[in-house]
Computed example of a mutant assay.
Amino acid sequence: MKRTTSVFLVGPMGAGKSTIGRLLSSEMKLEFIDSDKVIEERCGANIPWIFDKEGEAGFREREEQVIDELTMLDGIVLATGGGAVMREANRRHLAGRGMVVYLCTSVEQQLARTAKDKNRPLLQNDNPEKILRDLFAKRDPMYREVADIVIQTDRRNPRWVVQELQKRLKG
Rank of each mutant, 00 (worst) to 15 (best):
E164A: 15
P141W: 05
D68V: 06
P121M: 07
R144P: 05
Q110G: 12
F51T: 02
Q166D: 07
Q166W: 03
G44F: 01
D134N: 14
L9N: 04
G55D: 04
N157Q: 14
P121C: 01
R91H: 00
V38T: 12
V161P: 06
I47G: 12
V146T: 14
L111C: 00
R97I: 00
Q166I: 15
G83I: 02
E145A: 09
T153Q: 00
Y143E: 14
S26T: 12
R42D: 13
Y143K: 02
Q110F: 07
E108H: 12
G83V: 02
G96D: 01
Q166E: 11
I50Q: 06
L70P: 06
W49P: 03
M13C: 10
I149Y: 04
G171T: 10
L165H: 05
W160H: 12
R168W: 02
E41I: 03
T71F: 06
A89E: 15
G82Q: 09
L24H: 00
P12F: 06
N90G: 09
V100Y: 14
G83R: 12
A84Y: 01
E145K: 14
M28L: 15
V107Q: 12
A45C: 10
I149L: 10
R42M: 08
E69V: 03
K138A: 10
L73M: 06
K118W: 05
V66P: 08
Q65E: 14
H93E: 11
I76R: 04
I67A: 04
A95F: 06
G44T: 03
F32M: 01
N127L: 10
L24E: 05
E27D: 13
V10E: 12
K130T: 11
M13S: 09
K2H: 04
V100D: 14
L123G: 04
E41A: 03
I47M: 12
G75H: 12
I39E: 11
S25L: 05
D52S: 15
L132V: 01
E108L: 08
A84L: 01
A45G: 09
L23N: 05
A115L: 14
L94M: 15
V162E: 11
L24D: 02
N125F: 05
L132S: 09
R22W: 13
I33T: 13
R62A: 00
E129L: 02
P48H: 12
T153C: 01
R139E: 09
R133F: 05
G16L: 10
K170P: 00
V107M: 13
E64T: 07
I149H: 09
K53V: 01
K37W: 13
R120H: 05
M72N: 13
A115R: 15
N157Y: 08
S26H: 10
R120T: 04
R92E: 09
G82L: 03
G44C: 02
L135Y: 05
I39C: 02
M86N: 11
F136W: 08
R120P: 03
L122T: 01
E129K: 02
